[in-house]
Simulated assay, not measured.
Amino acid sequence: MAKLNDEMKDLVNRAFAFIATVDENGNPQVGPKGTMRILDDEHLIYNEETGRQAWHNLQTNGKIAVAFHPFPGLKGFRVEGHVKIYESGQIFDDATAYATENKLPKAIAAVVISIDRTLTLNAGPEAGTVIEDAPLDD
């Protein structure tokens, strides 16, 4: 798996995340995820709260892209990977506690993103440059 470096971790902690998913007909969907956070160097996690289109798409194919970009700023990054959904167990319990501690809606599930690839989201000629490409063969 690809790993988050310290600069990426800092940006995850201060930027708003947007996820991109695709449905079974290839229709794209983009939306914000305010609960996106770091689980460890190779995984992100967020609480699924709405159960709408992105939730449907992730249950259908499990592929996801997450974009982090500061405002203002010209340097960001994107991760691409696949998800594992937790609706019970310790990871879900931790997500439920996170929601309670932060006065957020109850989580439908905890979505853990395994990072397969990282790319730049910088303005200019560096846009889309692969930082690391290390998918885990499932």
Rank of each mutant, 00 (worst) to 15 (best):
P135T: 07
Q29T: 09
P28Q: 11
V79K: 02
T96F: 00
L136Y: 04
A109H: 03
L121C: 02
T96V: 13
I113H: 09
V83P: 07
D6H: 03
K63P: 00
N57M: 02
P28E: 07
Q59K: 15
K84E: 15
W55N: 12
G62C: 06
H43L: 06
T118R: 15
G31Y: 02
G26W: 05
H56F: 10
L136I: 11
T118I: 15
I131P: 05
I85R: 10
T50W: 13
F16C: 06
N122P: 04
N122E: 15
R14N: 12
I38F: 10
E7K: 15
T120R: 14
K3G: 00
R78K: 14
L119C: 09
E101L: 11
V79P: 03
A110K: 07
D116G: 12
L39W: 15
I115V: 09
K75L: 02
L74R: 06
F77G: 09
I108C: 00
N57Q: 02
I38V: 14
K103P: 00
F16I: 13
M8K: 07
D116M: 01
M8S: 07
L58E: 05
D23G: 09
N25P: 00
E7H: 09
I108P: 02
N13V: 01
P28I: 08
L58H: 04
A65Y: 03
A99E: 05
P105E: 06
N5Y: 03
E87G: 03
R14P: 01
A95V: 05
Y86W: 07
N102G: 03
L74K: 09
L136H: 11
I85D: 10
K106L: 02
K33I: 14
I85L: 11
R37P: 03
P32I: 07
D93I: 00
A17N: 08
A110Q: 10
L136W: 02
I113Y: 09
A109E: 06
A17D: 09
P105Q: 02
L44H: 05
V30A: 14
R52I: 01
A127M: 12
P72H: 06
I131R: 08
Q59G: 12
A67C: 12
Y46H: 10
T50Q: 14
E48T: 06
E87I: 11
G51T: 03
D116I: 00
